Amino acid sequence: MAVPKRKTSKARRDKRRSAVWKLEAPAMSKCDNCGAYKAPHKVCKNCGFYKGVEVLKIDAE
Rank of each mutant, 00 (worst) to 15 (best):
A60N: 07
K15M: 12
A19E: 01
G35F: 03
A39H: 12
D32F: 12
A36F: 01
V20G: 08
L56A: 12
K45F: 10
Y50G: 01
K45G: 15
C44D: 03
R12Y: 05
A19G: 09
Y50N: 08
A39Y: 12
D59E: 15
I58S: 05
A2G: 00
A25Q: 15
A36P: 00
G48Q: 03
K30Y: 03
N33F: 09
Y50L: 15
P26F: 03
K10A: 10
K7T: 05
L23N: 09
A60H: 02
K51A: 14
R17D: 08
P4G: 00
A11H: 09
A27I: 14
I58Y: 00
K10D: 08
S9L: 05
K42N: 10
V55E: 13
H41W: 03
S18A: 14
C31I: 02
L23R: 14
C47Y: 03
C47H: 02
V55M: 15
C44E: 01
C47E: 05
K42Y: 07
K15G: 09
C44I: 02
D59P: 12
L23Q: 11
A2Q: 01
Y37C: 07
A36Q: 05
A27H: 10
Y50Q: 12
K38F: 08
A60C: 08
K22E: 07
K57G: 10
A25P: 07
A60F: 01
K51I: 07
A25D: 13
R16M: 05
E54A: 11
G35H: 05
R12P: 03
K30F: 04
W21Q: 09
A25M: 13
G52Y: 09
T8E: 03
M28N: 04
V53T: 14
A11P: 00
P26W: 01
E54W: 04
P26K: 10
T8A: 02
R12V: 11
E61K: 09
G52F: 11
M1P: 00
K7G: 02
A25R: 14
D14P: 04
D32M: 11
V3K: 10
K10P: 05
R16F: 09
K42Q: 13
K57N: 13
R6W: 05
A60W: 01
K30A: 08
E61N: 06
K51E: 13
L56P: 07
C44Y: 01
R16G: 12
K57E: 13
W21F: 14
E54N: 11
E24H: 10
V3I: 10
G52S: 08
D59K: 15
K42I: 02
V53F: 08
V55I: 15
L23K: 11
R6L: 07
I58T: 10
A27T: 15
K57T: 11
D32S: 14
P40M: 04
N33P: 04
